[in-house]
Nucleic acid binder design. Structure first.
Lengths: 334, 334
DNA sequence: AAATGGATTAAAAACGTTTGCAAAATTGAA
DNA sequence: TTCAATTTTGCAAACGTTTTTAATCCATTT
């Protein structure tokens, strides 16, 4: 009645070879005489032998598993990245252990330790910001790490992103060219470098280049929730904004709906450009104009980079910047 | 320069005890003299020892890892389930290996085998339908399996769902009570039991109870994409429907937008009730009325059930039905 | 002082592979 | 044939734990 597992040893016995030989054929080692290989393969098939990956992991010190730390899979932005990661992982015969961190520091550290205990071959980290503790853990661990869609000053780990500053700059330039003077900058926490540094810099630069002075009253800091966006219209109206850059799609849909619920005409009286080009942008009415980020690709490239790192291949550049553009849809006038 | 891992043996030596004792304190075995425990703990802390989970897995035949097979994490329905699963898994000290199957048969079988090779302690399967091959694999494996949001006639595995037939029935009853005669049934593939059997039965039953004859011309079978919904209005209009039950939220948003793009007034001229109550329903304008399924809970309960199965606890009932209800929002008249 | 017995601890055998090294088999040339 | 060179194979030692079994302690009792 008990789980009667069959091992490499059983196969060896049945095939009249040593377990070393069985191991070789299982691992595709070429130093096996064809006829022997065939014989072993037959037995494997007959006994329905399945190599125990845990034992393999112990002996080879490789688990073909990578850890993926994500704030919340429920967020399309992250699930898109995760999808890209998993596809490439599968392509290279890896599996992913997915862990939600809620961007909670303690939980992150905890999760990281579990992953390392499980001997993952590499780690992909996603998150809006990287705590000092995590940074420290990353540089301490000799396990390769790649940040997907997260920037950090730590040059030790790999990371892949788009140029957030540049993208934001283009959006604001576009708005300015169309005559807007009061352009809102709406984003998640400014404490996160992507918002507080890169995007904001892009925003400021565009204003400066156009000779418009920066007004901190036009910077709106919220969390990433739809609800926060929906409630924002009051403030936006009193600030007199006529256009807005929004750092997140759900948030942007909220902003749009909030405005519409107040009988604002979009895009005639208020233009919006969002940031992530998730499928939400197509599902909204009017459709959301948005910076296009290759989400899936960011995940995919991250994983590809990680495979190189795990393989100890020479990597010319640990920082990868993917191209972006802007899709003009219903929340901008032509 | 090489990865200098410190093992249980190092700790044992430093603490002047046997590795058995170290193992005991690490595993919280009470048969250790307090003073010894303290000494060992100190050494563990000093050496920064981290037990190797792979070796543990080999020795104990438990990996504290469960496999999660999902068609596509990018879909909010599934990512919500996944989130519930992960949270409970974490609570019980498990990790999840997440694998996307694209509902592709070959890929599923492939993934399942990898998971079993990795010695996962249990498996949670999500998908619209279960192929015969997978069913066979499930019953062959002695690893516990739970289906989350998927029904199957196979009584061997656990599964947690809502009562799809009942829920659909209520929706249609509601429509009928409001005077609708031509009610569309829009769903994904009819080959999937949830659509072709449960939901459709609920639909038929409501009609029958109201003395309305079933018209197969009002049944619309599509895939689950937003685009399919958007394109559907033409057909719906020629069929003369005035209300629709839709089996998926993205699909429903598509149907709604398609209608709106044709100047249809919602809900005055066309009422819609969707099925998954994902956050999309709140983000749409008008907001989507929907059957409410406790997505997170389905995941959470599935994982909880799986822990019991893995623990070989007695489980009174392998099939769990969670409560549902209907949220009336903007796509239905009061 | 010896015997008893429960609480602690140690020893060593798994767990199922990979892998370095040496032995055996095969091949080809002389 | 023989011998060297090359392929194939087998042996056995890791890999880092858990776990069973047996030994050792130590406090009581007699």
């Amino acid at each position: 009645m008990e789980k009667q597992t069959i091992t490499i040893y059983d196969v060896a016995r049945e095939a009249n070879v040593s377990m070393a030989t069985v191991s070789r054929v299982v691992n595709g080692n070429p130093n096996v005489k064809p006829v022997t290989r065939k014989k072993v393969l037959e037995v494997i098939d007959r006994l329905d032998y399945r190599p125990n990956a845990v034992a393999r992991g112990l002996a080879s010190k490789k688990t073909t598993t990578v850890g993926v730390i994500v704030p919340d899979v429920t967020n399309v932005y992250f699930s898109s990245l995760a999808r890209g990661i998993d596809d490439i992982a599968t392509m290279y015969k890896y599996n992913i252990i997915l862990a939600n961190s809620d961007q909670n520091n303690q939980k992150e550290v905890q999760v990281l330790n579990t992953l390392l205990a499980k001997q993952v071959d590499g780690i992909i980290y996603m998150g809006y910001t990287i705590s000092d503790e995590m940074r420290a853990e990353f540089s301490r661990a000799k396990t390769p790490v790649v940040l997907a869609g997260s920037v950090d000053t730590d040059e030790q780990v790999g990371n892949v992103n788009i140029n957030y500053e540049e993208a934001t700059n283009e959006v604001i330039q576009y708005f300015i060219k169309k005559g807007h003077q009061k352009i809102a900058f709406i984003s998640g926490p400014q404490s996160e470098p992507i918002n507080g540094i890169y995007r904001l810099n892009g925003y400021k630069k565009a204003l400066k280049d156009a000779g418009i002075s920066f007004d901190s009253g036009l910077v709106f800091e919220t969390d990433y929730s739809y609800q926060s966006g929906e409630k924002l219209w009051g403030e936006l109206a009193s600030a007199g904004v006529t256009a807005a850059f929004v750092g997140d799609d759900e948030l942007a849909v909220g902003v749009k709906n909030g405005a519409i619920d107040h009988q604002v005409n979009i895009p005639e009286d208020f233009e919006i450009i969002s940031s992530n080009n998730s499928k939400l942008t197509e599902m909204a009415r009017p459709k959301l104009s948005s910076i296009t980020q290759p989400l899936y690709d960011i995940g995919a490239v991250s994983m590809r980079l990680l495979t190189k790192l795990m393989n100890k291949e020479e990597v010319e550049e640990k920082t990868v910047i993917l191209p972006h553009s802007i899709a003009y849809r219903g929340t901008t006038k032509d």
